[in-house]
Amino acid sequence: MASLNDRKVAILTEEGFEQVELTSPKQALEAAGAKVDVISPKMGKIKAWNETEWGIEINVDKQLSEANPNDYDALILPGGVMNPDKLRQNKEAVAFAFSFLKDGKPVAAICHGPQLLIETGLISGRTMTSYPSLQTDLRNAGVRWIDQEVVVDNGLVTSRTPADLEAFNQKMIEEIREGAHHHA
């Protein structure tokens, strides 16, 4: 596994994130040596959704209002239905994600996570995947949507469901190791 010892990664999330879609990438990143901060509009702890019921609570490392995208090398967006829907309505969260895309930094979004990226206005022309129910929203935002376990488009990594986490984590780490991608 590639060393990410010099990399700092932000996981942007809200209450109701899909538990394994945060815990699995976070563990993979930390195992590769990255410093990972869980960032949320909320302070303290936030609660996961675990398939069909509430799951664990995790600590928020930094409140969104105090987080600076320039302090991070990459952005991870876990899914879950509630989490991305809350984030996409939060102007600070949209601006945070916008900054990563604008600067060509790696962004990895799984399941419903790409919903937030629609709001940035920066994904038209990209190739992505997501949870199948988002394909119309993504296509309407100008995305070429394909049904694949993991899709990489110039530093933007997307996957469909928790079943894709192994491939998602591997590609996410590769893209973060490569660093910023500047597309034409």
Results as ranks from 00 to 15, higher is better:
residue 1 M to L: 10
residue 4 L to V: 01
residue 5 N to H: 14
residue 7 R to P: 00
residue 7 R to H: 05
residue 7 R to A: 03
residue 8 K to Y: 02
residue 10 A to D: 03
residue 12 L to C: 00
residue 12 L to R: 02
residue 13 T to D: 03
residue 14 E to A: 15
residue 14 E to L: 11
residue 15 E to V: 14
residue 15 E to Q: 15
residue 17 F to E: 02
residue 18 E to Y: 13
residue 19 Q to I: 04
residue 21 E to K: 04
residue 25 P to C: 07
residue 25 P to E: 08
residue 25 P to T: 06
residue 29 L to A: 04
residue 30 E to V: 13
residue 32 A to R: 01
residue 33 G to P: 07
residue 34 A to C: 07
residue 37 D to S: 08
residue 40 S to D: 05
residue 41 P to T: 08
residue 43 M to R: 15
residue 44 G to Q: 07
residue 45 K to S: 13
residue 45 K to I: 07
residue 45 K to A: 12
residue 46 I to C: 05
residue 48 A to M: 03
residue 48 A to I: 00
residue 49 W to V: 00
residue 51 E to Q: 12
residue 51 E to Y: 12
residue 52 T to K: 13
residue 62 K to W: 01
residue 64 L to F: 12
residue 66 E to N: 15
residue 66 E to K: 15
residue 66 E to Q: 15
residue 69 P to V: 08
residue 69 P to Y: 07
residue 70 N to K: 15
residue 73 D to G: 10
residue 76 I to A: 14
residue 77 L to D: 02
residue 79 G to R: 00
residue 80 G to V: 07
residue 82 M to C: 09
residue 83 N to K: 01
residue 88 R to D: 02
residue 91 K to M: 07
residue 93 A to Y: 00
residue 94 V to A: 10
residue 94 V to T: 08
residue 94 V to Q: 12
residue 96 F to T: 02
residue 98 F to D: 15
residue 98 F to G: 13
residue 101 L to W: 02
residue 101 L to P: 00
residue 104 G to V: 10
residue 104 G to R: 06
residue 105 K to P: 07
residue 105 K to I: 08
residue 108 A to D: 08
residue 109 A to D: 08
residue 109 A to Q: 07
residue 111 C to F: 03
residue 113 G to T: 05
residue 113 G to M: 06
residue 113 G to V: 07
residue 114 P to Q: 04
residue 114 P to T: 10
residue 114 P to I: 09
residue 115 Q to Y: 09
residue 117 L to Q: 08
residue 118 I to D: 08
residue 119 E to H: 12
residue 120 T to Y: 00
residue 122 L to Y: 08
residue 128 M to A: 09
residue 128 M to H: 01
residue 128 M to I: 10
residue 130 S to N: 06
residue 134 L to S: 02
residue 136 T to S: 13
residue 138 L to V: 11
residue 139 R to L: 07
residue 139 R to P: 04
residue 140 N to I: 00
residue 140 N to G: 12
residue 140 N to S: 11
residue 142 G to E: 05
residue 142 G to V: 13
residue 144 R to W: 07
residue 145 W to M: 05
residue 147 D to C: 06
residue 148 Q to P: 05
residue 150 V to A: 14
residue 151 V to T: 04
residue 152 V to C: 01
residue 152 V to F: 06
residue 152 V to M: 04
residue 153 D to G: 06
residue 154 N to P: 02
residue 156 L to R: 04
residue 156 L to A: 12
residue 159 S to N: 11
residue 160 R to T: 06
residue 165 L to P: 01
residue 167 A to W: 00
residue 169 N to D: 14
residue 169 N to S: 15
residue 170 Q to W: 06
residue 171 K to Y: 08
residue 171 K to C: 06
residue 172 M to G: 09
residue 172 M to V: 10
residue 175 E to F: 09
residue 177 R to K: 15
residue 177 R to D: 13
residue 179 G to V: 03
residue 180 A to T: 12
residue 181 H to F: 12
residue 182 H to I: 13
residue 182 H to K: 14
residue 183 H to V: 09
residue 184 A to Y: 13
residue 184 A to Q: 13
